[in-house]
């Protein structure tokens, strides 16, 4: 199993943070354009999901949408009620990636960005501590530890 890359967006669609580990292919566009494309796709998927859904969403979770899989990779998505959006791309055999996303939110973002009064919440994250902590949490995760297939 392996983790490819990570995107974090704020509620207005601004890219707050990007990181990659085993990314095997670049999209061929700038990071900024790639982020816009990613956010636009997520927005459309959310709207698609809420309209095509045959039932009411009663779980109270904001997103409705959890993940999609292609032949090679899976995109895992988490959105908090405050509109923070976390995206993690893994290979498509990875399991329990949602737990990892929750962990990134509660143990890395909340601890090292929200509780750091010097971090402006509406600007891209420049904290080294955040970056190091994110890297550690991802690398310790069972999703990452098994070698790439």
């Amino acid at each position: 199993m392996t983790v490819h890359n990570f995107y974090m967006f704020d509620r207005y669609g601004q890219l707050l943070f990007y990181a990659e580990w085993n990314r095997l292919r670049q999209s061929g566009i700038t990071r900024e354009e790639e982020a816009k494309l990613m956010y636009g796709m997520l927005f459309s998927i959310k709207s698609f999901v809420s309209r095509i859904s045959p039932l009411d969403n009663t779980s109270g979770s904001r997103e409705g949408f959890h993940c999609y899989r292609t032949s090679k990779y899976a995109l895992h998505y988490m959105e908090t009620p405050t509109g923070l959006k976390l995206v993690l791309n893994t290979d498509n055999v990875a399991v329990n990636v949602h737990e990892l996303l929750k962990q990134i939110y509660s143990q890395v973002y909340v601890e090292y960005v929200v509780k750091n009064p010097l971090c402006n919440l509406s600007e891209p994250i420049k904290s080294d501590l955040f970056e190091a902590q994110l890297d550690a949490v991802v690398k310790q995760s069972h999703v990452f530890t098994s070698k790439p297939t």
């Binding site: 292919r25 999209s27 859904s53 039932l55 409705g64």
Partner: peptide, 18 residues
């Protein structure tokens, strides 16, 4: 947007209700 070369499109999608 795939991080891997030669990927297909969406094959499955999981949501709360379906």
């Amino acid at each position: 947007l795939s991080p891997q070369p030669r990927t297909s499109g969406i094959q499955s999608l999981e949501a709360d209700t379906f």
